[in-house]
C-alpha cells in the first residue's frame, strides 16, 4: 500500500511539473491571470480590512483573529483552485467524450488520474503569499504560541481540510457516470465554497450542524484556526479527524461502484 502511495505521490509531483511547463507555454495568459488574481485578492483584503477597522467582534472572535480565518480560507482556495477546479470542470467532458477510456487502461488509480490530472500552478502564487501573510499576522496578533504543538495542530487540520475538500467536491462528480452532463453542479460548487469565507460560528446552529456533520464543508477551512485558538471541543476535534477519513473511504467506495457501470462514450 505504501509503495502505491509513493508511486502516486511521484506521479503527482510530475503532474505538477508538467502542468507548470504547459502553462508557461502561454506567457500572456499567465500574466493576465496573475493580474486578475491580484485584483480579486485586493477586494478580499479590502473587505478584511473593513471588518478589522470596525473593531467589531463577530461571534466572539476578535477582529485580528478573523485574519487567521480569512488567511486560511485564501490558502485553502489555493488548494481548491490548484488541485480541483480544472479537474471538476473537465470531468464530465472526459466521460461524455470517452477520454476516460484511456485513463482506465493505465496501471494507476483511475480516480487519482481523472480527478487530479490538471494542476493550476502559477496563478495561485499571489494567493499563497497573501494567505501565508494573513495567517502569520492573525497568528501573531491573536497571541497564539508559535510552537511545534500549535503549528502541528494547524497543519494536521489543514491537511484534513484538504482531504475533506477533495471528497466533498469529488463525491458529486460521480453523478457524471450516471447523468453525463453535470455542468449545473459547478455553480453549486462555487456557491458552497463561499460558505467558508468566514468562521462557521456566525451561522445559525442548524446550518453549523449540517455543514459540520452531514455535508462537512465547514471542516475545510474552519477547524485549523479554531484548533490553535483552543475553540474546538473534544468532540469536534475527534470528528474533525475522523470525518475526512470516513469521507475519503466513502469517496473511494463510490468511485469503484461508479466505474463498474461505466459505459464509455465517444465511440
Amino acid at each position: 500500500m505504501w509503495q502505491q502511495c509513493w508511486k502516486h505521490f511521484k506521479i503527482y509531483a510530475l503532474l505538477i511539473k508538467l502542468n507548470a511547463m504547459r502553462q508557461l507555454e502561454y506567457r500572456v495568459n499567465i500574466i493576465l491571470g496573475l493580474l486578475v488574481e491580484i485584483g480579486y485578492l485586493g477586494i478580499k483584503l479590502l473587505y478584511a480590512y473593513i471588518i478589522h477597522d470596525t473593531g467589531v467582534h463577530i461571534s466572539g472572535f476578535a477582529p485580528q483573529s478573523l485574519y487567521l480565518f480569512i488567511g486560511t480560507f485564501i490558502l485553502m482556495t489555493v488548494f481548491f483552485v490548484a488541485m480541483l477546479q480544472f479537474n471538476i470542470m473537465a470531468f464530465d467532458r472526459q466521460i461524455i467524450e470517452g477520454e476516460f477510456d484511456l485513463i482506465l487502461t493505465k496501471p494507476v488509480s483511475a480516480q487519482f488520474l481523472a480527478t487530479l490530472k490538471y494542476v493550476e500552478t502559477w496563478m495561485v502564487i499571489p494567493n499563497v503569499i497573501v494567505g501565508l501573510g494573513l495567517v502569520g499576522y492573525g497568528w501573531y496578533a491573536s497571541g497564539i504560541a508559535f510552537d511545534v504543538l500549535h503549528v502541528g495542530l494547524y497543519l494536521l487540520y489543514a491537511v484534513l481540510g484538504v482531504l475533506t475538500m477533495y471528497c466533498v467536491f469529488t463525491l458529486p462528480l460521480l453523478l457524471a457516470f450516471k447523468l453525463h452532463n453535470i455542468s449545473a453542479f459547478h455553480s453549486l460548487v462555487w456557491a458552497l465554497w463561499d460558505f467558508n469565507n468566514l468562521p462557521h460560528r456566525i451561522f445559525p446552529s442548524p446550518i453549523q450542524i449540517i455543514g459540520t456533520v452531514f455535508f462537512p464543508i465547514f471542516l475545510i477551512t474552519n477547524f485549523s484556526p479554531l484548533a490553535i485558538m483552543g475553540q474546538l471541543s473534544l468532540g469536534e476535534m475527534v470528528w474533525g479527524a475522523l470525518a475526512p477519513i470516513l469521507l475519503f473511504l466513502l469517496t473511494c467506495w463510490g468511485w469503484q461502484r461508479a466505474i463498474s457501470t461505466y459505459e464509455s462514450g465517444g465511440g
Binding site: 508538467l18 511547463m21 504547459r22 507555454e25 477510456d101 484511456l102 487502461t105 465517444g266
Partner: peptide, 14 residues
C-alpha cells in the same frame, strides 16, 4: 496497450 485513432494520451501543449 490500446491505441485508439481518435483518442490521444499525449499532452498537446508539451
Amino acid at each position: 496497450s490500446i491505441l485508439m485513432g481518435q483518442k490521444h494520451q499525449l499532452w498537446p501543449d508539451l
